[in-house]
Simulated scan of single mutants.
Amino acid sequence: MAAHNWIDLSQDADTGIETLRAHFEGHAYDPHWHDSYLIGVTEQGVQQFNCRRVRHNSVPGQVFLVEPGELHDGDAPTADGFTYHMLYLDPHWLAREVNAVFEEAPQGSQLGFASTLTSDPRLALATSQAFQTLHSGELRIVRQRAMDHLLERLTGQLYWRTRYREDPRLPLVAHKAREYLHSHLHVDVGMDELALACGVDRFRLSRAFKSAFGLPPHAYLVQLRLARARHLLAKGEQPADVAIALGFADQSHLGRWFVRAYGLTPAAYRKRCSNLPDR
């Protein structure tokens, strides 16, 4: 990571919620996704990112909201870069907590964000207060109250939407390929093998997959592995062991992809989440 860029990351012991504050100049992140709900506030500069096939420019005070699995990147279009703070909310935690505020979730539904970028001063304030209390390790009762306040403000941006097992808007071959990659996460899958499993040639498969999910199959598989690596590292597993378990060539291979997606090395991420020393 460039010398002028920095990341300060922590994890709340009670909820598992990660809190992050960072500054970037120039290119920040390659396209990637998380399996958490992201809610954050831009503090300074212009945070430019692509999400939902739209380019967004988040300026100070705006709140950005990204759902699990939504592909996004990050760049600083101005010389002074941008600074932001953000919370990573576990989907199971969020659904459980929101059920106390919303009516019971309709069957076969999942939470969605109504918009990716919003100018809502009260939501921005609630997000910043929740970030500060969790990131600084305030008393438990203070942290819980701040999160309750955030959830109350967040309900205006949340809605229950149908959980598609197979989204009818996307080609069936793309669904088949995605399911195959999820079930072969640890395997060194080749395009010929994937195309054979889907019953099409690899060129047609690549076009359909990228059109549906924004990434070619090989890049999608890397993102799956990186999302799993975050979980294992946060639990305290060693980067070298994680790399082997997830099919990366070695720890350096995992590290290169991890830094491009998250701006931190696997070892640094592990240390900040688990507080465990390296072996």
Rank of each mutant, 00 (worst) to 15 (best):
L215Q: 10
T162D: 09
S115C: 14
A95K: 01
P171H: 01
R96G: 09
A208T: 02
D201N: 15
M1G: 09
D148N: 13
D148V: 04
A130R: 08
K235C: 07
G247I: 09
Q11W: 01
N50E: 13
C273E: 06
P171N: 02
Q238Y: 02
A95L: 10
D30L: 12
P216F: 11
V46E: 08
Y84E: 07
L264V: 08
G199T: 03
G69F: 07
P31F: 05
R230L: 09
D90G: 01
L125K: 14
H34R: 07
D30I: 03
G247H: 11
L89D: 07
D250L: 07
R230K: 15
D241S: 12
K176Q: 15
S10G: 14
L158N: 11
A177P: 13
Q11F: 01
D8T: 01
R178G: 06
H253T: 13
E138A: 14
R270E: 08
A245E: 10
I244M: 12
T265H: 09
A267H: 10
W6P: 03
H218F: 05
C51V: 08
V259N: 08
R140D: 11
L181Y: 03
I7G: 00
V63H: 04
H184N: 15
V259P: 03
Y220W: 12
G74N: 00
A174F: 02
Q223A: 10
N57L: 12
A227H: 02
N275D: 10
R169G: 12
D75P: 04
E18Q: 14
A234K: 01
T127E: 01
C273T: 10
D250W: 00
Q238A: 12
A28L: 06
F131A: 09
D201M: 02
F82N: 02
Y88H: 15
W160F: 10
V200R: 15
A13C: 05
